[in-house]
Design a protein around this nucleic acid. Structure first.
Lengths: 121, 121
DNA sequence: CAGGATCCTACCCGATACTG
DNA sequence: CAGTATCGGGTAGGATCCTG
């Protein structure tokens, strides 16, 4: 009963602690598309400030979700990407996405969305 | 592509907004076991205060995850349960739980693994 | 017993400016 | 260009008391 449920809860809380940040899931999604440099990320995540971006990246890095690669020193060049764990985490986000899309549209069947790119970015 | 990702994000954010509260997922887990009265919930969710419990329940109710049933007026009796949407949401939490359990066990801190999930659902 | 009303604290995030 | 420092605000959540 409550015993098993607590174990159950541990995994959930662990996962939520990782993706809980405001931009964490968006970062994971973006880096899932392709590895990117901070400035590229910042362009995609409209509204994020450099400070917050760095902080969330650091946390994701500490959690083993994101990898950070530095190439060069004088013109700083850094590339962020997903680790294996990050890619598997991204898979689980699909579940949340699908559920959310279905609920948001008050629909019981999977939806197909056709969008203008202008509407998106 | 970027715009697939954006759509993707909407569903994720929608879902995270619902389960984002500190006790939300625990409440959903508990009510998944069986419908309960507030005081029972409070006993299971060790550390939660009545105010916060009520607040999170109200939010979950507003999101269509939790149902609230009142029987009687003078000795207040209320029972909370999961709606159909709540039960389906609980299903998706399993994904998070499994991923979290796996990741947590791969790190240095040893924790007990969930034994039999059939007992929980 | 359910749950509202207050007060209070901590933390997350945003804006901005700065450094190597 | 990557990342840091500083300041400030909004808010979730905790503690406590109170009521129908």
């Amino acid at each position: 009963m409550a015993y098993d449920d607590k174990i159950y809860q541990l995994g959930i809380n662990y996962t939520l602690a990782i993706i809980g940040g405001k931009w964490k899931s968006a970062i994971i999604c973006q880096l899932g598309l392709q590895s990117q440099r901070p400035l590229e990320l910042q362009r995609h995540l409209v509204g994020i400030s450099p400070k917050v971006l760095t902080k969330q990246l650091r946390q994701l890095e500490a959690d083993g979700i994101v990898s950070r690669t530095t190439c060069g020193t004088v013109p700083p060049k850094v590339v962020y990407g997903l680790t294996a764990a990050g890619r598997s985490l991204r898979e689980t986000l699909v579940t949340l996405s699908i559920w959310g899309e279905q609920m948001a549209t008050q629909s019981t069947t999977p939806i197909t969305i056709i969008h203008d790119s202008s509407e998106i970015f």
